[in-house]
Design a protein around this nucleic acid. Structure first.
Length: 788
DNA sequence: GTAGATTAGATTTTT
DNA sequence: TCTAATCTAC
């Protein structure tokens, strides 16, 4: 087929070869190399290119492989040009990985360009820039991040004369985000919700915010999707263009889509006969409900796309038998699943999932650290081990311990590069240089470094800008020509404006990295940190250098800024061998030989707040999180829980997580409590086998414990109040905390409910070493003892 | 306009 | 207990 003929064949939608025909067989042969090594289900998922398809891919079943091979297959079999394929992911990382894998699969076949492959947001931007004027923006619109968003909302709240204390900007920002996640324009927000925000003015302020965004020629993250939706709805001709263009659509992590994304996909997929949409997901790994993800989207796929094919990938290539069985047993306790049963082909059962307990979090860290060193001595790489925590505050304990041990670790997730103060300041300078109308950027740096242009001056600028309906910088330019400002301020401001003019003029003629250095240098920003004597200053200067280096990899300044606003991450080349520490959320999609899962205690995991705020659904999401954690492990998984954990500075007695009881007995190895400190040995009390591992059997009799125990099995977790599961006797806690000083001194006589009378031998914060008359020397928390 | 004091709040996080 | 953000006094 000549090139033009082929192209027109594609456009006339007649490209699909007759099944079983010569062309089809020839094409299959061409595609064959990619199919090699796929199991039958995977192969089916790759080859079922026509019509809607839902791939339910359990953990470790080769989901990414299916997606990439499918794209390669569509391309290699000539079903579509790259530009006719749309592949969406949630993270930049996933998009990058997919790009690399596709390139590897078909290499030279990419001559015709890449598919539309990226995050929902990146693709949204791409579409919006093309049709910006249709949604009241210019094609060079700025993308606001959360920080800008909040500052803008703060201004709006103030302008509306609403008490900022009672109605914080971040709360309104969260509400607006939530609405946008659900694809709701201001007039579509339910009355109740609109009324509940911003002192009854939720709707008005949301509308005002959207109006301000247009004036600023800006869009926030949510807009990248909702404005696309608006565009598609208001302009059927534009929608039709994309429906026609995207002959094949692929969606990764479908269980994480929110309503807006779902509507976006549905609009695009509804084009005529070409409903070639393939969604890959795992309902059991939906852990972003709190961020607006709707598991329902995956659960109702078949209803939305009648005749949809569903393929299950259940053959797990990652974990050994016990780990897989433990994870499956756990997740089976959730209702409302689509149901999958993972299995392995290797008969290897491997090690059982270890369940361990420790006295408190520092011992937990110590024991895990020791275990890591043990494995390391056996020749295991630190890179193959990870500690997955529920909440980031748990990380510190491990970091502290590993620093002491000299154990190499890296924290994944933490504060991100582009969110750091100095980087954001530097970017604000660059943004204002590129776009003098970027008020938020200008505002951010107008007095950084200090130029004497404080809130009062800014207020003046704002007033003038609003009256004249112009950007801040333009307003400033007018003001410096008047007597409105004191000479000193006038001078400072006009110097700054002149600098920006000069830098802007240089954009076309100067390499952008040079320009960036110049801006940072001449603005005095670098100098500001050089003069700063604080401990962070050198690191910040280092980051600024790093920023300029990173810029070098991009074509132009605007190109770089666009990248930054969409990809808030910077890739740090981590070559060295180190244990990874991260939250369970950021572990999704990763795998390690050995996984440590600390903090399996009621209140922390499942997290009390998830239970309080979302009841049963919250509990199930927590359980999925536990499932995600377990399924990260290839060969070894070790769960830990402690008896005492400090929460907001208070020592709390904790109850083992209910998830422990969800694990099948046969796949779990319960270790005797570690001998650290020599207490916490098995207690003959308790109702579940794990309770026996909690120390202080007699405390079981306390009302607090009974409440916690009763609550453990309460069908409706919303009935639980506050932090019941965590707190021990309120008065005791209060006593030990009031005054903030130790309640006991060495030599003092004390009484312990379980161990009886004894003499305090040593005091370490609120931990006591007590020589009990009968029980011998024990370490206890002071809240458990009373003065005798 | 800045340093020191005070106070609230403290899951998970991408884009 | 710790942090960050805001308030208060200079």
């Amino acid at each position: 087929m000549s090139e033009p003929a082929r192209r027109s064949a594609i456009q006339s939608d007649e490209l699909v070869p007759k099944p079983g025909g010569i062309a089809a067989r020839a094409l299959a042969a061409r595609a064959a190399p990619y199919l090699a090594g796929l199991n039958p289900e995977q192969q089916e998922a790759v080859e079922a290119t026509e019509g809607p398809l839902l791939v339910l891919a359990g953990a470790g079943t080769g989901k990414t492989r299916v997606l990439t091979t499918r794209i390669a297959h569509i391309l290699a079999s000539g079903r579509a040009y790259p530009s006719q394929i749309l592949a969406v992911t949630f993270t930049n990382k996933a998009a990058r990985e997919m790009k690399e894998r596709i390139a590897r699969l078909i290499g030279e076949g990419m001559a015709e360009g890449m598919p539309w492959l990226g995050t929902f947001h990146a693709i949204g931007v791409r579409i919006l820039r093309r049709h910006a004027e249709l949604v009241d923006l210019r094609s060079d619109f700025t993308i606001l991040d959360t920080d800008d968003q909040i500052r803008l909302l703060k201004q709006i709240i103030q302008a509306a004369n609403i008490d900022e204390k009672r109605w914080p900007a971040r709360q309104l920002a969260a509400a607006i985000d939530g609405w946008k996640n659900r694809g709701l324009a201001p007039d579509k927000v339910p009355d109740g919700e609109a009324y509940a925000a911003a002192n009854g003015k939720g709707r008005e302020l949301y509308a005002e915010y959207q109006a301000r965004l247009k004036t600023l020629n800006a869009a926030d993250f949510g807009d990248l999707l909702t404005e696309c939706l608006r565009l598609f709805r208001e302009r059927p001709d534009v929608l039709a263009e994309y429906q026609k263009r995207f002959r094949y659509m692929l969606v990764d992590e479908y269980q994480d889509t929110n309503v807006a994304q779902y509507l976006w996909l549905r609009l695009l997929a509804q084009g005529k006969e070409s409903r070639n949409i393939c969604c890959v997901g795992d309902d059991d790994q939906s852990i972003y409900g709190w961020r607006g993800a709707e598991v329902d989207n995956i659960l109702r796929f078949e209803r939305d796309f009648p005749g949809a094919k569903v393929i299950r990938l259940e053959r797990n290539y990652r974990s050994t038998g016990h780990i897989l069985a433990a994870a499956s047993g756990l997740i089976a306790h959730n209702e409302g699943r689509l149901g999958k049963t993972l299995f392995t082909e290797t008969a290897e059962l491997g090690e059982k999932v270890a369940v361990n307990s420790a006295w408190d979090s520092s011992e937990e860290a110590r024991a895990i650290g020791d275990d890591i060193e043990r494995l390391q001595r056996q020749g295991h790489a630190l890179n193959d081990m990870a500690i997955l925590v529920r909440a980031s505050f748990q990380m510190r304990e491990f970091e502290d311990r590993f620093v002491t041990l000299g154990l190499n670790y890296r924290v994944i997730g933490g504060p991100r590069f582009f969110e750091r103060l100095e980087i954001r300041d530097a970017l604000a300078y660059l943004r204002a240089t590129v776009n003098p109308a970027d008020d938020l950027a200008f505002e951010r740096i107008v007095n950084t470094p200090k130029r004497g242009l404080g809130p009062a001056t800014l207020q003046l600028l704002h007033g003038h800008a609003r009256r004249r309906n112009m950007p801040l910088m333009a307003a400033a330019a007018e003001l410096v020509g008047t007597e409105e400002l004191k000479p000193k301020l006038r001078q400072a401001l006009s110097a700054l404006l002149r600098s920006f003019e000069r830098w802007s003029a240089l954009i076309p003629h100067t390499p952008h990295t040079d320009l960036a250095e110049m801006v940072l240098e001449e603005s005095g920003y670098t100098e500001m940190w050089q003069l700063d004597r604080s401990a962070e200053a050198p690191g910040r200067l280092e980051n600024l250098k790093e920023l300029v280096n990173t810029m070098g990899e991009y074509e132009s300044l605007p190109g770089f800024l666009e990248h930054v606003s969409l990809v808030m991450d910077s890739e740090g080349g981590e070559a060295s061998d180190a244990v990874s520490i991260m939250t369970l959320h950021s572990a999704k999609g990763l795998e390690f030989d050995t996984v440590y899962l600390p903090g399996w205690e009621e209140g922390l995991f499942p997290h009390q707040r998830a239970l309080d705020e979302n009841g049963r659904a919250g509990l199930e999401e927590e359980r999925r999180l536990a499932y995600v954690g377990l399924t990260r492990a290839r060969r070894r998984a070790a769960i830990w829980f402690v008896s005492n954990r400090r929460v907001h500075g208070l020592w709390q007695s904790t109850v083992p997580s209910r998830f422990l009881d969800d694990l099948p007995e046969a796949d779990v190895e319960i270790s005797e409590p570690a001998s650290y400190g020599g207490y916490g040995t098995a207690m003959p009390y308790g109702m579940s086998r794990f309770d026996t591992m909690a120390p202080f059997g007699s405390t079981y009799a306390t009302p607090g414990w009974q409440r916690a125990q009763a609550n453990r099995d309460t069908a409706d977790p919303r009935k639980r109040t506050g932090r019941q599961a965590l707190t021990i006797e309120g008065e005791l806690v209060a006593k030990s905390v009031i005054g903030g000083e130790a309640r006991f001194a060495a030599g003092e006589r004390v009484f312990h409910q379980k161990f009886g009378p004894g003499t305090v031998a040593a005091v370490d914060g609120n931990k006591l070493t007590v020589d009990f008359d009968k029980a011998g020397r024990k370490r206890v928390v002071d809240s458990f003892v009373e003065a005798a």
